[in-house]
Design a protein around this nucleic acid. Sequence first.
DNA 1: TTGATCGATACGCTTGGAGCATCGATTCCA
DNA 2: TGGAATCGATGCTCCAAGCGTATCGATCAA
Lengths: 300, 300
Amino acid sequence: MELRHLHYAVAVAEELHFGRAADRLHVAQPSLSRQVRQLEHDLGVELFKRTSRRVELTPAGAAFVHAARRTLAAASDSRVAAVQAASGVRGRATLGFVASAAVEVLPRVVAVHRAERPLVQLSLREMTTEEQVPQLLDGEIDVGLGRDLEPTDDLQVQTLQREPLLAAVPHDHVLRHRRRIRLAELERSPFVTLPRDRVPRAWDKLLVMSRAAGLTPHFAQEANQFVTLLALVAAGLGVAIVPDSVRTLRHEHVHYLRLNDPGAWSEVTVAVRAGETQPVARDLHRLVSAAATAPPPRAT
Amino acid sequence: MELRHLHYAVAVAEELHFGRAADRLHVAQPSLSRQVRQLEHDLGVELFKRTSRRVELTPAGAAFVHAARRTLAAASDSRVAAVQAASGVRGRATLGFVASAAVEVLPRVVAVHRAERPLVQLSLREMTTEEQVPQLLDGEIDVGLGRDLEPTDDLQVQTLQREPLLAAVPHDHVLRHRRRIRLAELERSPFVTLPRDRVPRAWDKLLVMSRAAGLTPHFAQEANQFVTLLALVAAGLGVAIVPDSVRTLRHEHVHYLRLNDPGAWSEVTVAVRAGETQPVARDLHRLVSAAATAPPPRAT
DNA sequence: TTGATCGATACGCTTGGAGCATCGATTCCA
DNA sequence: TGGAATCGATGCTCCAAGCGTATCGATCAA
């Protein structure tokens, strides 16, 4: 039994006439008759009652043709599924992202992706920029949304937006009425930070800036998430250095002060394997880049 | 694209090895390689990434194989559906029945049929015995459950059970305390009946019996259903002659008296086209016969 | 009775799927 | 580092089988 036999049986069932069915199938009538007969022999079942004047379906024929239509539809779906998957219309894509990008960029990316590629299932995995690099190379994730990542031979990296760094201070901090400060002015304040082993490059940047400002930072406490970090600031345990977009997480007892130090910037970057060929990954990369730049960044 | 290609692609996807897949399919490895390649060319899509050391699925290949499995299952279902329909395990059967058989025989038939042929959809059509004959010959119904039908060349008829005829009389009728009466004793009572044009043979039998009893019947009222008929009796409009099984329809104000006249019997008959070949019809006929005789008839 | 219609059959051609032998690339191991 | 083993691809040949043309036989209408 081949798909050809199913096509033939369905055509005969629809025309109830071997000649017309053969025309529709662009084959000669004897070929059609032979193939249908062969199908019946293979099944061991009579599908059509034929006289030289009339063709009609047997109950078995009706049951078979019904199922055959479903089979042919499934075969057609198989073809479509393959083509769509190859073109990137259908499939699965995995996006790694840092927590600080989840606030602003990520929701826009998800919305745009769902609108443009409704058949592509988007998996989201929160992870640090450092974790993204090996997972990109292993194929664990297709695109990485991180911070301050430098391109390499294996990774293509673009900057999406450049944000100033802010100091998040408690509402009773002495500098709370200032709009802009310099890091050196925080000499008396301990820092609350994300864990050093999870975000080593953010730590390094803070250390470099501190040294440039002639400051020896005192680290009071670590927190795993930004929300917790801000709660610690609000509780008066110290100050935190965060990128501008974290401001979206408004907190009643936290004030944000812009840092004027040189290098007090953080870039949101998007990374993809260099020479990526998979359409779902290329599409996701394209949409992430577009979604980040399309709406104008908030005024600072 | 043929089912062969789908089988081949699925096998390669499962083995991820052309040699082993070819063994499993009982073909030579070069044939398998060529067919898979031909499938890819037909689809315009690469399904497998192959080196001389490793074979892996592309995303398009994974999508295709998933759909191909469903297609192959549908093809297998088509075969099964045809065989089952031909053997009578699956299909549709239509049973015509008279209202007076609906009370006792029909529920048993439906229950047994559902248990023995769960995949055969049983259609039930209430109709008179007279209507069953042409509909059997036209194929509108497969089996007819009627009364007092005589076999012909075209119809095979069996008797399922033989019931005495009863007179249904109102609760204040003068004969109400009798167990058995003769039709002649109803001379003073008008008759309520089913419509003459719907059940001509039942009418004829009543007329023949009346003549034999020296009775000139007076017809008071017609009703389309037994329930209505009994309601008319209960209301005192007259008496009705009904087969024994109608007694199952108990009615508070109706008494049943057995008729002692010769020929005061009615037979429940089952009819099927002579030489019927369709298994669903033959099965239904067999089950109707069995269901009617299996439980012992009620004592009268 | 005759002609038209329609599915089945006969026959020869051609396609294409299969097997065998072999190639080229890659990997493993000594 | 070189040789052997593994594995998919390719070239060649064979033949099964699908197809088309011509025709038959049965049925039905005029």
